[in-house]
Nucleic acid binder design. Structure first.
Lengths: 150, 150
DNA sequence: CTGCATCCTCCTGGATACTG
DNA sequence: CAGTATCCAGGAGGATGCAG
């Protein structure tokens, strides 16, 4: 994550209409180790720093800070400081942030729904990592052409 | 990415029902630098290695191999080898892989639709990175309590 | 409580060279 | 063509200590 500018404008070959790269950029943003967990945890209510830290569990305060800053920079989260003693800082999702929860949850449902299938695939693969091999005969039979390529 | 076992079973505090962590796991899988681009490029037709490499553009052959192996391991992609000369290997999405395109595209549409908003937010943030600050008075007025925390 | 700064480690991923 | 193997730089991210 590190609060660096996402390279949406990096030197890219511009093959596809930019859509793919854009998706990639978004996933670079929310696909890091913690962003999604933070977004999910933020829900609808404002949350405080250590509250988030405890609830998420396993995140270092450094990464929570960086993640929140990143989300804040992208306009997904607002950070409200109350200069009380002890200090109090509320984080809450913006409308943009909330709108992101929708597609993320879709992905989440996919994940939950296909977790078993994925685990099964992994077991299978770990047992026999080799890809399926077709002899030339079968190949030409199935594909009707295995010839001339280069 | 590196063909390592995703740590879905890592020591996790088990706070949430596992849903969040599962989502996180999936994003760890497809949220890397290339997986989504590969999945998008694979589309419905079988594609060959260098074909993918060229079309994606910018990916090293090492990373394409690793990414494809990862996707294959998770059952999202099949790898079919035709032992011809020169060698031919077809990659294609499995049903599972195709089903993933759905939520991913949802995310992609979100990305496209809110790209401008995000860029605007970034500009704003880069100009004034500080979070909004409320004085104690305003704070207690808005939240009706700013007192005792710890 | 909230968070920045520092150090340090490991992984990600690019470049390159070599094999079948 | 389709990889594998190796080397290497840079970044992600944890641990710790300090500040407001």
């Amino acid at each position: 994550m590190e609060p660096e500018h996402i390279d949406v404008t990096e030197p890219m070959p511009l093959h596809c209409p930019g859509a793919c790269k854009t998706v990639s950029g978004v996933l670079a943003r929310i696909g890091d180790k913690w962003s999604v967990l933070v977004i999910m945890q933020l829900g609808d209510e404002p949350r405080r720093f250590n509250d988030l830290k405890r609830t998420i569990g396993g995140i270092s305060q450094r990464m929570l800070t960086l993640t929140l800053r990143g989300l804040e920079r992208d306009g997904l989260v607002t950070r409200t400081i109350y200069p009380t003693i002890p200090p109090r800082v509320d984080y809450r999702l913006t409308d943009l942030g909330r709108s992101l929860r929708q597609p993320v949850q879709a992905l989440g449902q996919w994940a939950m729904g296909n977790l078993k299938a994925i685990e099964r695939a992994r077991s299978t693969y770990d047992a026999a990592p080799a890809g399926q091999i077709f002899g030339v005969a079968e190949a030409s039979g199935r594909r009707d052409d295995t010839h001339a390529i280069g």
